[in-house]
Structure formats: structure tokens, C-alpha cells
């Protein structure tokens, strides 16, 4: 809507938009600020906004209590691993659904999504027992596996909506040009779908990084990611606001920063075919 509006109108819009944005962002800002406060000033009444004695002590303390780096590495491995597995499975599946659709394609997609509607708690015990039997409990591979399966329907759906926008004639041209199915997907489809794939990868990393149910219940120490790290601060350390804030900041910072920098790519593909 590139319509011309008056400067006052624009200033008013700007002010309201910024107010809304700052309200939504405030809890995060407050957490980050609190993480730099001495514990006593963190619960000061009235609250101190900026004029406190800035300190890094909370970060040092938190890191001494729990080895942050190990959790961080696990989070990275689980997020990237499940995304890579997911793509390998989903690209061919989405190709099939987008370019060789059948009457059942839509139903199949909806079925995939409905597998995500099952309440995870309902199958926690069986999965726990299965993982115990298979030796997958508290292993990185086990967590990668679970998160791949958790997010697979979403990846397939996103790629499917993306692939559907690519004209089939281009793939047919590749076929006429002598490309095998592998070359067709590798040299023609994938490069054309780069924006969509990028956005899918980003969303999947975010979802995997933040998945808290399976990661908390199926890991102990070896494969425990940052969700488990933060769960350890729920109580009684939760009462120490500054330390809680430092731990929270450490858990969310990596994904928050990645999200900020890749915001444009992420949003572009986040439409799930909602925009025609």
C-alpha cells in the first residue's frame, strides 16, 4: 500500500507501532537487563531500569553451576542434525507430492500434520520404554531422531507449498534435456527452491532448538540441550532473578540472534501457502 499519507499520520502510526513492538519485546529486554544486575537489585522495589551496578557475575555463577557449553553444543547438534535429516527425507517426499500429485495427496499431507496433534504426554511412557530398550535414552542420535520425526510434517508441508509454485514445465524441460531424477532434483529443483528451503531450515532450527517436552524427558546429561539447562533453574533457583535471567539469556541468545539476522528469509517462507 504505497499510498501517500501526511507526516502527522505517519508519526502517529510510527508511535503506535513502536509502542506495540516495545510491549511485546519488553519481557525479553527486561530479562536481559536483569541478567546484568546484582541479585539484590534484581528484586529492588521500585524496580531499577538502567541505573544499577552492571555485573557479569551472574553469568560466571550460572556457568559454574552448570557447564553451559556442553548444553549449547548438544542444542546445536540436535537442531542441525534433525534439520539435515528432515531435509533429506522431506525434499524427495515434497517433490513427489508437488509434481506427481494424486487424489490422495491432500489427505496424505493432512494425515502427516495430524500426527503432530497427538498429545506427546500420551505416548511418553511407551517412547521412554522403547528408547530405554533401544539404548537411545540420553543420546544425541536419539534426540535427533525424535526431533526429525516431530518436525518432518511441517518441513514437508513448507517444501510442498514452495515446490508447488515452481512450474512443472521446467522440470519437464530438464527431463527432455536428459537429466536423471537425481540431477533434476539436485541441479534444477533445489537451486530454484533455495529461498523456500532456507526458510524451512530456519524454522526447523528454531522449532528444534525450542522443543522442550521430549528433550527434557528423554535426556539426563549426555545429550541434554539448553531446554534441560533452563529447566534446572525452575526452582528453587527461580527465586534468584538475576541468575535465572542470566541462564535464560544464555539459552535464548543464540537462536534470538540467528532469528534477527535471518528474519527476512524466515518470514518469506513462513506462509505455508497462505499467500497466493
Amino acid at each position: 500500500m504505497a499510498r501517500h499519507i501526511s507526516t502527522q499520520r505517519r508519526a502517529l502510526n510510527t508511535a503506535s507501532a513502536w509502542t506495540v513492538a516495545l510491549i511485546l519485546f519488553f519481557p525479553i529486554l527486561w530479562t536481559v537487563l536483569t541478567s546484568f544486575k546484582p541479585e539484590a537489585q534484581a528484586v529492588a522495589s521500585p524496580p531499577i531500569f538502567l541505573g544499577f551496578d552492571w555485573t557479569l557475575q551472574n553469568y560466571v555463577d550460572v556457568n559454574e553451576q552448570r557447564d553451559y557449553f556442553r548444553y549449547f553444543v548438544n542444542s546445536i547438534i540436535i537442531a542441525l542434525g534433525s534439520t539435515a535429516f528432515g531435509l533429506v527425507l522431506a525434499v524427495p517426499a515434497a517433490w513427489s507430492m508437488a509434481f506427481v500429485p494424486g487424489r490422495k495427496t491432500k489427505d496424505l499431507l493432512m494425515w502427516m500434520l495430524s500426527t503432530k496433534m497427538m498429545p506427546a504426554v500420551g505416548v511418553l511412557v511407551p517412547i521412554y520404554l522403547l528408547f530405554k530398550t533401544l539404548g537411545l535414552l540420553d543420546t544425541r542420535f536419539g534426540m535427533v531422531l525424535v526431533l526429525t520425526l516431530m518436525n518432518l510434517p511441517i518441513i514437508v508441508w513448507m517444501l510442498y507449498t514452495y515446490f508447488k509454485e515452481i512450474p512443472g514445465e521446467i522440470l519437464e524441460a530438464a527431463r527432455m534435456d536428459g537429466a536423471s531424477l537425481r540431477s533434476e532434483i539436485l541441479y534444477v529443483l533445489t537451486p530454484m527452491a533455495v529461498p523456500g528451503i532456507a526458510s524451512t531450515v530456519l524454522l526447523n532450527i528454531i522449532l528444534a532448538w525450542n522443543e522442550a517436552f521430549w528433550t527434557i524427558n528423554l535426556t539426563v546429561t549426555d545429550a541434554a540441550p539448553l531446554t534441560k539447562f533452563i529447566a534446572g533453574f525452575s526452582s528453587p533457583q527461580g527465586l534468584f532473578y538475576a541468575k535465572l535471567s542470566a541462564a535464560s539469556t544464555m539459552a535464548i541468545a543464540p537462536i534470538l540472534i540467528m532469528g534477527w539476522f535471518s528474519q527476512k528469509q524466515l518470514v518469506r517462507g513462513l506462509t505455508f501457502g497462505a499467500v497466493k
Binding site: 505517519r10 519481557p27 525479553i28 528454531i206 533452563i230 535464560s248 539459552a251 537462536i255 534470538l256 518470514v267
Partner: peptide
């Protein structure tokens, strides 16, 4: 609407989406 600083506003608005649920609940 046309506003000043739209890019930053978008970043601020999207941020809660990146927060892991236990952290959100705790804070």
C-alpha cells in the same frame, strides 16, 4: 502502514517467537 523504523519494529515483534517455552514460562 508506512512507518519509520519498520525493520526494527518487525524484529522486535517477531522476537517472542524465538523464545523457548520453559524460558517464557519462567520469566
Amino acid at each position: 502502514q508506512p512507518i519509520w523504523g519498520q525493520g526494527i519494529v518487525r524484529i522486535l515483534v517477531i522476537s517472542p517467537f524465538f523464545i523457548m517455552p520453559p524460558v517464557a514460562a519462567l520469566i
